[in-house]
Each structure stands twice: as C-alpha cells, then as structure tokens.
Write a protein that binds this DNA or RNA. Sequence first.
RNA 1: CGGGGCGUAGCGUAGCCUGGUAGCGCGUCGGCUUUGGGAGCCGAAGGCCCCCGGUUCAAAUCCGGGCGCCCCGACCA
Length: 593
Amino acid sequence: MRMSRLFSQTLRDVPGEAELPSHQLLLKAGLVRPLSAGSYSYLPLARRALTKIEDIIRDEIDAIGGQEITMPVVHPASLWQETGRWYQVGPEMARFKDRAERDMVLGMTHEEVIADLVRQEVRSYRQLPCLLYQIQTKYRDEPRARGGLIRVREFTMKDSYSLDADWEGLDAQYRAHFQAYFNIFQRCHLPVIAVRSDVGMMGGQMAHEYMYLNAIGEDTLVLCDGCGYAANRQVAAARLPAAEAEGALPSEPVATPDTPTIEALAELLQVPTARTAKAVFFMATIAGGEGEVDRERFVFAVVRGDSELNETKLTNAIGARDLRPAREEEIRAVGAEPGYASPVGLRGDGVLVVVDELIPQSPNLVAGANQPGYHLRHTNYGRDYTADHVADLVLARDGDPCAQCGGTLRTSRGVEVGNIFKLGTRYTEALEAVFLDSAGNSKPVIMGSYGIGSGRLLSCVIEEHHDEGGIRFPISVAPYHVSCVALLQRAPEVAEAAERLYQEAWSQGVEMLLDDRDATPGVKFNDADLIGLPLRLTLGARSLRQGGAELKARDSEESRIVPLDEVVSTLRAEVDRLLAESRGRVSTVPYAD
RNA sequence: CGGGGCGUAGCGUAGCCUGGUAGCGCGUCGGCUUUGGGAGCCGAAGGCCCCCGGUUCAAAUCCGGGCGCCCCGACCA
C-alpha cells in the first residue's frame, strides 16, 4: 500500500473522548472511527491487523481439530425460547420483530444455533468428538460501552463449540482449548493468565477466563503468588478463619442509638467488627420458564461484619437471574429495620434468608433488633434464626489468606480477552440434540463453548505495546511488516529506488507500506512511529550517498545502511527472523482447574 | 439505571459567569520558497455555535425539555 492512497489519515490531535492509550492510538493512527457509542468502523490498517489475529486464531483452532463454519446473526426467538434464555437474558440481547411479526434476536452467542445444527446433523457417537467454530459479528446491547475497543456493542468474536459423547471427551477438548488459547495470546505477544470464573448466563460446570493484567481492566482478579491460585473476584474464595470456641450466651437487647453502620456499632459497643452480623437486602428476580412470568423475591443476606458481600456468589447461591438492592419500604415490609436489621423475628413469608458459611461458626454476634436504635447481643445461628441457604457469600480481599495454601492473596485488575466454558448438556437437553451411543442408547451431546474477541485483543496488544511515539506492533499482528519512508525531495532517484524496492518487496512477500506522500521528513517519521510497523526503511538522498537505505526496528534506536540490491533479501530475512521469534514464544502452560 | 463532565469548522479549543459583528491553533485548497524528526511566507475555502421550545429589541451565551458523547459506579462474554 502507498500511503498517498491509504484511505485513513493520521490525526495530529486526539479527539477529546479518548482516555486510554490504546483508544487514543487507534484513533490517532487512523485504525478505527466511531459510528456511535460502542460501535466502530475498522479502517484498512485495523482490518489488516485483525486479519492477522484471526489467522493466528484459525491456525490454532484448526490445530486442535476445529472446522470453521458461519452461522446466522439473526435467530428466531423460538430457538432461544426452547433453551429458556429468551427469558433469562436481559436487555443486552437485542430483540425485534420481522415483517411477519415473529420475534427475532440478534445473536450474542451461538449455543442455541450449534445445538440446533447438532440435532439436525449428529446421529451417532461415531460423529463425535467434533469441534466447530466461526469468526463472526456479535451484537450485545451493552449498558455501557467504554475504552475504545475494550467494551463495544458490536464486535467480532471467534466462538468455538466442542461436541462430545462423554465427559472425558469434553475434558480433553476443554484442555486443548486451554493451551490453544495460550498459544494464540503468546503469538499475539499479549501476556495473559487464566483464572477461574463465574459461568454467568452461559450456565454449565466450569469456566476459565483469560486475563490481560492491566490497570485499565474491568475485572478484579484474586491471585496467590504462593500456589498460583487465580480467580475472578466474582468467584474467588478465601480461607475461612478457624471456628470460634465459645458457648452460646443468652441474647439481650442493647440500646445503640445512631449506629446504622457496622463501624459505628462496633465503635459504640467496643467489639471487633468480626463479632457483628451485617444484613444486606435485595430483590432477586427468579426466572420463570416458558409461559411463566418472572418472580421477585425478597432476599435477606447476612455476612459477618468484617466481610463484604459478593453479589455474584449470592446470585449463584439462590439461583437468581438478577439482583437489585431492595428499597426501604420493601425492607420494612418484611419487618426489618434498615440499619438495625437481622433475621431474628422477621415476618418470614416469602423472605429468602441466606447466610454466609462463617455465620454458623461465629457465636454471640451483635445483630440488629429490627427496631431503630437497638441491637441484640449474642445472637446465634440455629438458636435465634435459621436460613434457607448457607453458602460462601463473601468477597475475597487483598491480603486474605489463600484457600488452597494459606498464602496471602493479592488483587489485580485485568481485561478479559477470552473465556472457555464447560457447558455440559444444558443446551443439548433443552433442544434434544441427542446421539446414539455404541450400546444404542439415546444421549444428549456434551458441549463446551470458547470465545475470543478479536477487536478487544487488538486493543490490548496496542495497550501493551506502545510508547510516546505511538504503537509498537508485534510482527505477528502488524498490518504490514515495514514502513518505507521515502524522502523524495529534489531527488528523482529516490522515488525510482523506492518504487523499485516496493515492487520487489511485495513480490518477495515482504509487506511494505510505502510513504510516498508529498510531506516533510518530520511528518513521515512521526507517522511511521505512530502506525508502529516493526521495521522502518528510510530512503533519501543521504542514505543513497551512504550506499543504500537505512533499516531500523521500531523498538530500537540503532539503524544500519543496507545496499539497495540487498534491501529486499535483508528485509525478507529480518521478517522471517521476527516471525520465527514470534512463533517461538509459544510455551506449554500447566493446566489448573 | 445512578453520579459527574462535555457538545462551537475535519481535529484541538477560546468566547458562556456579566446577552450585542463567532475567534485562535492544527489540518484542507492555491501560489512561492523549503526538505533526515509534525517547515516558512502570501492568499483562500470551510460554522443551522447538538436539537426543540421559552425569555428578550437582541441568545453560542440566560431558562425549560430532549438527543448525543466521555468518565465513575451498577451491570456485563
């Protein structure tokens, strides 16, 4: 490509809306342009980089047996009604009616369509295992797009789906993806870790997320340097403190004016916050099935005063679709007093009481008396109240002891660039996607699903690889291999040499972006740095006097003069060396579940 | 959905408080000069000041409503 013909222009000033370096650089270097919040056009440079990323993904998924397909973006709602997700998924799924007034959805993921394909095509265990994938547009009506390409509404995702006859097969395909994903990110020069994660709306048995550790990340991760434990904070568990050895004392009311917070209460009574119980109230949406409406139920959650509630854990513990904080009048309606509440003596009908697993082990806690200004000393689980569920409900925090090894947990932020799910039979049972096993029994196919967002991956690569001057593309992702800065001034022989090298480079598979614009050297050098191709070839009157062209790497200050008749072979060798180095980054990562 | 910020030429912005001819830098176009790290001079084009309504002799400016974008939170693959 000649830059005089390149559709996109670089910007001198970055549009004010961009804050993250990757977002600024994507705009400044002319890779993307916004259409509306969370949707972008990908201009030629971005398109080429994305194609490189997608080809790496194809290479690695093909290598574990993947077969590429393409599924529709628009799905009939009936399919999603069959699996129940029509009712479970909220407004992030875009819905509309077609001309015949049929409900339709824009595909945000494709488990339903895959399961539908399976029920049409798969008859026998002999057709399994199987791995299908596509690289395709997804639409999710995000409540809040942010960070350029970090979170968008419309994006491209590689989604693969494994199909197996047995659980061992699922395990094998899951592990194959576990490593293939590391290979993909390593080949894109993006450092990631795999963490355990919530299954969310996907359902299923287990999931990992691939996280690029960076402060710009939206997720909080809990990590243990001692044993390598790594989990999304949504599911991370810390070690339970040892049970208190203390007999139950008789409970008694105590006047505690103006103590609506745990801190104020502990201060007034001179007890540690660990000797108090904290109440948190929600209205949970329990999904109705086909033909049923969703129900709302009051949830009374209790954790110890020294811990924080983890809403994901609570949601999972009660199987809710959604939680929202309860309003004051809703809290009063069940007989609780905001700021002074406990499950003791609630008007119980319809209230779902859920307590953290630490509560039954913690005797004689101070808890609310359900009257303004009063608490109860020495409340005890089992004697004074019981719960519908006892479960781990607390947020793991920086400095907590590790559940596995007792080491110290730390937290870090990360961007989720990929995920893998063991789905099991959740979709195939609902859609009756079954096969006959060798004994002639009909069984549901066992599924896994695996996703990587290529645009988010691109923005993370830029976030990781940039400096003040611009992007520093790794060779494997770079839109072109080399920028040729042709300083054309008053030297027709420069233009001729540049044109000759350009033709020869492409004929040898060296992808050259030739800056043939009528611009000053400063502009061209700055744009070359900004776009950030791994190699830069400078051709000017000066370099010709010195015997050729000047070759420099984007991430180095050193340059050398290469004779003109050796330039393309030198570039070819340099590109091959960089590509080989890039592939050599792949290394095996021990599987940990 | 809650909180905050912002919408003025392609981009970055001043003006708004205190109403009265819409300004600057970059970019763009033409000319001359210049040419190894965002050149100089001369000339030019380019504005429903986000939209609708109100107040006023007069609104970019004040008031009301709406829309859009960004950030934090909630939420989320």
